[in-house]
């Protein structure tokens, strides 16, 4: 718990371990300034650090509001969601586990759950299905999955090409860099200024999407 980088800088430590000196590149290239929010949550959890919280608040509150307006379609509920989400962030910061994902994902899932329960209460369905029933706090046991890897070469070689264009742009760019330009995952992370974990998850999502497309073709 004493080594802050290990404890809070999930992505930062990933990069630092694999490739010294990469931190600078990613920090300038990424709008997120990797590791910053994970560290802020750590300071809030341990020291009840209000200035770390203020930094986090200023960055995420406007984005939560934009997300809330998109989901609710009105400002009043969006603001209620922002306030409730940020209260949860302050109170539950100690529950944040940087080995399970980055701070923005944690905050996003809190907002999603707050919104879900707001809708439910509005419909006076208090006894009904709640966010807690639906989304476990990330406590599924870790599972190694080798499926995607065994698929890699096979599906690319085969009839994948026509479906490539239909991938969401973010996933397509990563897939092209990995499979057509033959960059390593690490290199792609560096080039795009995104966390290594994001590169890997986009590849898995893209592979699954392609697999679904191929399945559909065969039917």
């Amino acid at each position: 718990m004493l080594d802050q980088r290990r404890t809070y800088g999930h992505h930062a430590s990933q990069f630092a371990n694999n490739s010294p000196g990469l931190m600078d590149t990613t920090e300038t290239a990424s709008p997120l300034n990797l590791g910053q929010w994970e560290e802020a949550l750590g300071l809030i959890a341990i020291n009840r650090d209000k200035s770390a919280y203020a930094g986090l608040f200023n960055y995420f509150a406007p984005r939560l509001k934009a997300f809330g307006i998109k989901m609710f379609g009105n400002e009043q509920q969006a603001m209620e969601m922002v306030q409730d989400t940020m209260l949860n962030v302050w109170q539950k910061a100690a529950l944040f586990d940087p080995t399970r994902g980055c701070a923005s994902t944690w905050i996003y899932t809190i907002a999603r759950n707050v919104r879900f329960d707001m809708l439910r209460k509005k419909q006076s369905r208090k006894d009904d299905i709640s966010a807690d029933d639906l989304w476990s706090d990330g406590d599924y046991p870790e599972q190694e999955d080798l499926q995607s890897h065994s698929w890699d070469l096979y599906i690319i070689a085969e009839k994948i090409a026509p479906h490539f264009a239909a991938l969401p742009p973010a996933q397509r760019v990563v897939m092209e860099k990995v499979y057509l330009e033959e960059n390593s995952h690490q290199e792609v992370a560096e080039q795009l200024g995104i966390p290594l974990g994001t590169v890997k998850s986009r590849i898995r999502l893209a592979l699954d999407r392609l697999r679904e497309a191929v399945d559909g073709q065969q039917r």
């Binding site: 984005r63 905050i107 996003y108 974990g197 994001t198 986009r202 999502l205």
Partner: peptide
């Protein structure tokens, strides 16, 4: 993975 991706665009 999907949550991480959604959160990435959100953040």
């Amino acid at each position: 993975d999907i949550e991480a991706d959604l959160a990435c665009s959100f953040a």
